[in-house]
Design a protein around this nucleic acid. Structure first.
Length: 1037
RNA sequence: GGGCCUGUAGCUCAGGCGGUUAGAGCGCAGUCCUGAUAAGACUGAGGUCGUUGGUUCGAGUCCAUCCAGGCCCA
């Protein structure tokens, strides 16, 4: 006996029962431990930060990780998936700053770094419980008992080891770069933070400034002035406050520039942008931008005179440039590819102390570097506007230039500009020193190795990710912050010698302190110092300085990118991971916002360290949007709490919906309504079939052991559905192997639909009939096989319901059956059972049946009323052949006595077409037929009713009414009854003529034409215009 | 401003290499079924396949352009 299954099912309730079973049987752990020799399949968990409660988008990523892992497990792999927590980083710090009411770095330092970091440490585990509950609840199997945690000393130590490796290979360096900087917070912002604060239509001053050219100009007709009229380069900027930092002007080498004569001055600007001129002018001549390069001009503000320090970029060895002090500088024109002709004048004001492009150009061209602004955004030096905040200095600078005749034109320019997302201060681009990983040195490898990664969807490889790699910039890893992996570089405060530390042991040895038990975070690690002299070689002059750690911590992306190594504390432990299959990952999966995040940090570190992929396959998920297509965010308050959905519809419904609603890479709208629809359409339909099967199998005492060894289906319907099943198994296997749960799920869905709405519907009577013959056994064997196989096929996607079905259908009946579907093997298709022709024929039967019902519907003849004949016109000779095979199915489905296949040119078809007129697909009445036309097919039913047919219809109607009474009386479906009836002659006649049929259909031992016994429930109904009294009475055995 | 993706019915989505009349589910309206029944089946209405051009005997499909939306980057 199978366990009784109710068609009234609560999936959330079943979920908890299943979870309890998995816990008790320890299924997850055993799926790994009990197969030590199985091939390894590595899944890397991208670590979340548990300082907030998990949302629906986290569910999305986790189930996509899960489905592949479960599939690979069923395919016989040992799937290692270690959980992890990301614990460092600016977001964590900001949350604590807000809680504590701190608004600046000075506040934090006054509060105390030790206490501040302690708060950070505590906060990142605040929601661990919620995460664990959600993770278990959705059926995501991952090792949460032994996770990697980025704040642990072992994890940090691997990070140090990686940095030391890079250091030893010359891939770690310090450099100055234009960085978005908030002058109020006195801190750089990460690009992610900058992205939070862009504002459209920000008004800024738009100023056209005249830089006076200094003779000698090149020997060109255009440039040789006939008189002493001064010549100016006309440049455009929206940040007048950067003008004191100007050390060069950039032009496009390929563009054409014009020298124009205006009243009182000659101006040089790009020919394409002459329209910016505000007055009458004549063009004196043109020349290419490359001819302007090298020309010098008078600085607007001479840095020497105003007391700003001057530095100069000097090329060093190994291609790096350094900044060295200088006494003077000579501003001049340089050519640069980035100069555009879209706006401005084609001449770009360059201040290497600010913009990143400016700085890069400064480095390339060996420009001077003048920094007249401090980190608070205040102008320094002896300028007339010194002491002012930069934005306040703008009008004063403009006024000053106007007075000196150097301001050509002034206006307002509206553009998108970044603001600090915390304090709304406009960000300044400011050249600051940071530490970098020289990823550009391995750019070609980054690109090559990426081509070996299987991206799903594929376009990410060459698109978003490939694009990013081809434009690779060195990775800025230092943050002037507190809560993060400390950068293990100790630098001498006297001689500047820097030392990168690669392990705790090395630090102990060099510092002379045992730091094994030290918390490696700030501020404790900052206390570790040692004299520089200690490392000096014997006999050399001893440096009096002290080695101190540089103050920066690492970008948290470095932490997560280090996880392939750090999760195993490599190489200090598990030094064999690069040989035993734990490196690299077979599979990772995160949302598309990780292309610049985790996908990149993994790829970069793996390329640099191992010259290999970090992951072989990656699913890149689209974002999950709310019901209106907006991104979910706490700010908008449109975040969906997954637990509510889970408690309402169950985990499988949510999983199934997320798998099948759209392909993984597409953004998707989340809708509770659609989850419910999935539940009803897929899971409930399957459950109904399952419950139907159990119901009858138990009545007939069917058990799987009754299926003979080597059994093969005989009935056409059985051969058909098993053909469909094996085709399904092929396709689902192929889809999952190809990291495509979406199409796998959609195929299963289609199968469940035909299983329920064609196979079961067509087969019902085979299960009802009383004799236990071979045909009935065939039906049981077939439906059993379908359900058991589908349960396994869908186990990776819907682990809960499949486990329920497996445990009831398979587990007790196979001695070698593992105690969980997730330990069982994935179904292997039997190709010999696939019969494409039969599937095509059945599809035709479905179509003809559907059209026949349409024809009945139009003629107003219910299916219960038998009809004499149906005429079918198919499109091809093959289909006429198919029709012969499926004739019995069509006749029964349509309740018609005979089927006639007609030639394509039959007169009836022509008549029907004529009656349909322009409407190609229609149902028309023609020659006593009701004919449905569709796509070249015709199904025409003979609507004429003979008296015999009418009687038969009435017999069916009567048995139908009796069935209703049985049900109303709550009889069991196997109870036998006595039926009483009273009515007109027609009823009497039909009851006599069709006595056997009615008795058999209604399980009646007798049909009595009299008033019922006392205890029977009698009802008088109107049937086809007649009053009929019917009653049923259960026969006590 | 640049890169990638998307645009098909009211909603969510299918529509290999171009090829008969563009489909499904939900929703809506109606009908049927009633031994899967707190299910199920059928019918109907609903589409300028984002726009405009082009290639082709033929374009939802290929190319270009523009428009709108999303994400990422400036």
């Amino acid at each position: 006996m199978f366990d009784v299954v109710s068609s009234r099912v609560s999936f959330p309730g079943l979920d908890s029962e299943t979870l309890e079973y998995w816990r008790k049987q320890d299924v997850f752990r055993r799926s790994i431990d009990e197969r030590p020799d199985a091939p390894l399949f590595m899944m890397y968990e991208g670590p979340p930060t548990a300082n907030g409660s998990p949302g629906i988008h986290h569910v999305l990523a986790r189930i996509f990780k899960d489905v592949i892992s479960r599939y690979q497990t069923m395919k016989g792999c040992r799937v290692i998936r270690k959980g992890g927590w990301d614990t460092h980083g600016l977001p964590v710090e900001l949350a604590i700053e807000q809680e504590l009411g701190l608004t600046s770095k000075r506040d934090i330092e006054e509060y105390g770094i030790a206490e501040f970091n302690q708060r950070c440490r505590e906060s990142v585990f605040r929601y661990v419980k919620d995460w664990e509950v959600m993770t278990e609840r959705i059926g995501y199997w991952v090792d949460m008992d032994d996770p990697y945690v980025t704040l642990e000393n072992d994890y940090i130590e691997t990070g140090w080891w990686i940095l030391k490796e890079l250091w030893d290979r010359g891939l770690l360096y310090q450099d100055r770069r234009g960085t978005p900087h908030c002058p109020r917070c006195v801190s750089s912002l990460s690009s992610h933070e900058v992205a939070l604060g862009y504002r459209e239509n920000t008004p800024d001053p738009s100023v056209f400034v005249k830089f006076e050219a200094i003779a000698p100009l090149p020997d060109s007709a255009a440039l040789t002035a006939a008189d002493s009229t001064p010549t100016y380069f006309l440049a455009w900027t929206t940040t007048p406050w950067t003008l004191p930092g100007n050390t060069a002007l950039a032009v496009s080498p390929d563009a054409e520039y014009s020298v124009v004569q205006t009243a009182g001055a000659r101006l040089i600007l790009a020919t394409a942008l002459l329209s910016v001129l505000q007055e009458e002018y004549t063009v004196a001549g043109t020349l290419p931008g490359s001819d302007l390069a090298g020309l010098t001009y008078r600085p607007l503000y001479d840095a020497v005179a105003y007391g700003s320090a001057i530095q100069q970029f000097v090329p060093g060895d190994n291609g790096q440039t350094t900044l060295e002090d200088a006494d003077a500088y000579s501003p001049h024109v340089v050519a640069a590819a980035f100069v555009s002709m879209d706006d401005g004048t084609g001449i770009v004001h360059i201040a290497p102390a600010f913009g990143d492009e400016d700085l890069g150009l400064g480095r390339e061209s060996g420009l001077a570097f003048v920094q007249p602004v401090d980190l608070q955004g205040v102008i320094t030096g002896g300028y007339p506007f010194a002491g002012k905040f930069v934005k306040d200095a703008d009008p004063e600078i403009c006024a000053d230039l106007t007075e000196r005749g150097l301001l050509y034109h002034q206006g307002v320019y509206r553009h998108t500009y970044p603001f600090c997302w915390r304090c709304d201060t406009p960000l300044l681009y400011y050249a600051k020193t940071s530490w970098y990983i020289r990823t550009t040195a391995r750019k070609d490898r980054l690109v090559d190795i990426n081509s070996r990664i299987n991206w799903y969807p594929e376009h990410i490889r060459e698109g978003r990710f490939g694009e990013w790699l081809r434009n690779n910039q060195d990775w800025a890893i230092s943050r002037e912050r507190y809560w993060g992996t400390p950068i293990p570089i100790w630098q001498c405060d006297a001689c500047g010698r820097a030392n990168c530390i690669g392990s705790v042991a090395e630090l102990s040895e060099l510092s002379g302190h045992d730091v094994n038990d030290l918390d490696l975070h700030r501020p404790y690690v900052d206390d570790i110092t040692w004299p520089c002299a200690a490392a000096a070689s014997p006999g050399s002059v001893k440096c009096p300085g002290t080695l101190r750690r540089i103050p920066e911590v690492m970008d948290a992306w470095f932490d997560s990118g280090a996880m392939p190594f750090a999760q195993w504390h490599y190489p200090f432990e598990n030094s064999e991971i690069d040989r035993d299959g734990r490196l690299p990952a077979d599979y990772i999966c995160e949302a598309v916002d990780q292309t610049r995040g985790w996908f990149y940090s993994l790829h970069a570190l793996s390329t640099l360290l191992k010259d290999d992929v970090a992951y072989r396959n990656v699913i890149c998920l689209g974002l999950i949007l709310d019901g209106r297509g907006r991104k979910m965010s706490k700010r908008l308050g449109n975040v969906v709490d997954p637990m509510t959905v889970l408690d309402t519809h169950g985990a499988d419904a949510l999983r199934w919906y997320l798998f099948t609603a759209s392909h993984p890479g597409e953004p998707r709208r989340f809708s509770d309504r659609l989850v419910q629809q999935t539940l009803r359409q897929v899971l409930l339909t399957l459950w109904n079939v399952y419950s139907f099967f159990i119901n009858y199998a138990n009545i007939d005492e069917f058990e799987p052991s009754q299926i003979p060894a080597g059994w093969r289906p005989e009935a056409e319907l059985d051969r058909w559905i098993l053909s469909e099943l094996n085709r399904l198994a092929q396709q689902v296997d192929a889809h999952l192997d190809n990291y495509n749960p979406t199409d796998a799920g959609r195929r299963i869905q289609e199968f469940i639909d035909v299983l329920s709405n064609w196979y079961v519907r067509r087969s019902r009577r085979r299960f009802w009939k009383s004799e236990n013959d071979a045909d009935k056994l065939g039906a049981y064997a077939t439906l059993y096989t379908c359900l058991a196989t589908v349960a396994r096929l869908m186990a990776p996607l819907a682990p809960f319901v499949s486990e329920q079905i497996y445990r009831n259908l398979e587990l007790p009946y196979r001695p070698d059956a593992p105690d969980s579907v997730h330990l069982a093997s994935f179904p292997t298709p039997d190709e010999s059972l696939i019969d494409q022709t039969l599937m095509d024929a059945t599809q035709l039967a479905m179509r003809v049946a559907s059209m026949g019902r349409a024809a009945r519907s139009k003629a107003g003849i219910k299916v219960r009323q038998p009809l004499a004949s149906v005429v079918v016109r198919t499109r091809t000779p093959e289909e006429s052949q198919y029709l012969e095979w499926v004739r019995p199915q069509i006749l029964e489905e349509l309740n018609i006595k005979s089927l006639e296949a007609v030639a394509p040119d039959s007169g009836l078809y022509a008549g029907a077409q004529q009656a349909a007129g322009d409407d190609a697909d229609a149902v028309v009445a023609v020659d006593g037929y009701s004919a449905a036309l569709e796509a070249g097919y015709m199904v025409a039913i003979d609507t004429r009713l003979s008296p015999d047919l009418a009687d038969e219809g009435l017999a069916r109607e009567l048995s139908h009414r009796i069935q209703n009474l049985r049900k109303g009386a709550r009889f069991d479906i196997t109870d036998r009854i006595v039926t009483y009836y009273q009515g007109p002659d027609d009823v009497q006649r039909v009851m006599d003529a069709h006595r056997d049929y009615i008795m058999q259909e209604t399980l009646s031992d007798a049909l009595l034409p009299q008033a019922p016994a006392d205890d029977a429930s009698a009802e008088t109904q109107r049937i086809e215009g007649m009053d009929v009294t019917l009653a049923v009475c259960r026969v006590t055995p």
